[in-house]
């Protein structure tokens, strides 16, 4: 099987990675770059635990080939906090007890950040719709919805988080 040398910007740093054709972006992040904050829950684009930003839009990284990311810009949960300052959505998730086991949380945070980036003042229906691809078995979701709503109220401090 062919390998490909790709160049990809991950969390602001340019990485040169050698990837086989069938390696997913998820596997590259976790196993080539050691960025284990992004989780593998189903490998089928159903659970959302692997959600990351690809060129500014949230994707299931288990359904993207690493080789497709040559020249792309990827952001993971590890990029949300900057200089010890949490992104407002991270703080809001803590404040609302919207995290339990924490396995879905990285993907939830990316989906939520992406929503707030494109719609700074979402309705509850819009939040539910934006998070429907992030399965959570612990919280019952309402705390997550509230956390997103409150983070929208706070807004994003300049220079923190997101895909801008």
């Amino acid at each position: 099987m062919a390998h490909h040398k790709i160049s990809v910007t991950v969390n602001g740093s340019v990485e040169s990675v050698d990837v086989p054709s069938n390696m997913t972006l998820l596997t590259m992040l976790r196993e080539k770059l050691g960025l284990t904050g992004t989780k593998n829950g189903c490998t089928a684009g159903e659970c959302g635990a692997c959600t990351v930003f690809l060129n500014g839009e949230p994707v299931n990284s288990c359904l993207v080939l690493a080789v497709e990311c040559d020249g792309a810009e990827v952001r993971t949960v590890e990029s949300l906090a900057r200089n010890g300052q949490l992104d407002p959505i991270q703080q809001s998730v803590i404040d609302h007890n919207a995290v339990q086991c924490g396995f879905c949380t990285p993907g939830v945070l990316i989906s939520a950040r992406a929503l707030l980036d494109r719609n700074p003042d979402p309705t509850e229906e819009e939040i539910r719709d934006a998070l429907v691809g992030n399965l959570c078995r612990c919280t019952g979701y309402i705390r997550i919805l509230d956390a997103v709503k409150d983070a929208a109220r706070v807004g994003a401090a300049p220079g923190t988080g997101g895909s801008r």
């Binding site: 949960v77 590890e78 007890n97 924490g102």
Partner: peptide, 17 residues
């Protein structure tokens, strides 16, 4: 506040995999 919340929102929390 939960003890484990901070590391779980930053992606630092370690799971077996």
């Amino acid at each position: 506040t939960r003890l484990d919340a901070h590391e779980k929102v930053t992606g630092e929390a370690v799971f077996a995999d």
